[in-house]
Structures are given as C-alpha cells and as structure tokens.
C-alpha cells in the first residue's frame, strides 16, 4: 500500500505497458496516475509538487525519460524517480543516475522489483528530508 496521499506517476508512451503497469500497481493497493508522454507530465504541475514517485520509461519519442529528468532538475523538482530502460547500457545508466533517478531497472521488470524500487526511491526521499 502506498502511504497516505502518495501517488505513483507512470510515464510511458506505450498504452498497453502503461495500462498494465497501472493495473499491477493498483493490485498492490497503490494510487496511480498515468501519462502518455514526458510533455504531458510536465504540464501537470500539481503532480510535480505532489507527494509520490515517478516511474519513467526511458525510450520515448520526442522527449526521452532522460530529457524529462533534466527538465525536472532545471525546475528544482525533487520527485523520487524510478527509470525503466529497454537496454542495459551502462553509459545511459550513469547519465540517469546523475540526472536524479534513484533506481534504474532493465525491462522486462518483475512486479516485485518494481515495488522494491518504488519503496527504495520513496525511502531515499524521506531520508533526504
């Protein structure tokens, strides 16, 4: 269960991946809100200020997950982030970590790994405060 008022923001351009991820997270009692692009998430300022965790796909057309992280950093938004990548690329992982991703997962991601990653990201945020 997500702690009170916490939300999981899922950003993925693939409708099936997005929808199915939402269902899995909801089956664990989590409160999920999803976005089909990085741009759409950037428009939702309430979400960025909100209390929760961003689950972000790296590989998206136009704005990539990494570019979204850079944009968030620029706006001093410190939402905890779990990034999901399709390719185990060490260079990409390093850039994602620098850009503020707490956890980076390779696809395909098991629900156990995803949950653990979200918990970890949220916990890091807590201890940072």
């Amino acid at each position: 269960m997500t702690p009170d008022g916490q939300k999981i923001y899922v950003v993925d351009d693939d409708p099936a991946v997005r929808d199915s991820m939402r269902m899995v997270l909801e089956s664990y009692g989590m409160n999920v809100q999803d976005y089909d692009s990085a741009e759409q998430f950037l428009e939702d300022s309430a979400a960025q200020e909100g209390n929760g965790c961003l689950v972000l796909d790296y590989h998206m057309p136009r704005m990539t997950g990494l570019q979204l992280l850079d944009a968030l950093q620029e706006h001093h938004i410190t939402l905890p982030v779990v990034m999901v990548t399709g390719r185990s690329d060490p260079v990409l992982k390093e850039s994602a970590r620098k850009a503020g991703a707490a956890v980076i997962l390779d696809k395909p991601v098991s629900d156990e790994d995803l949950l653990q990653a979200i918990e970890l990201a949220l916990a890091e945020r807590e201890s940072a405060h």
Binding site: D14, A16, V17, D19, S20, M21, M23, V24, E26, S27, G86, K107, P108, V109, S110, D111
Partner: peptide, 13 residues
Amino acid sequence: NQPLAAITNYLRA
C-alpha cells in the same frame, strides 16, 4: 519486449 512487458503485467495483475 513492449507487448511482452504488458502481458506480464496484466497476468500478474
């Protein structure tokens, strides 16, 4: 991989 990931998620859900 994309549909495969979705299938896995749906099945788990």
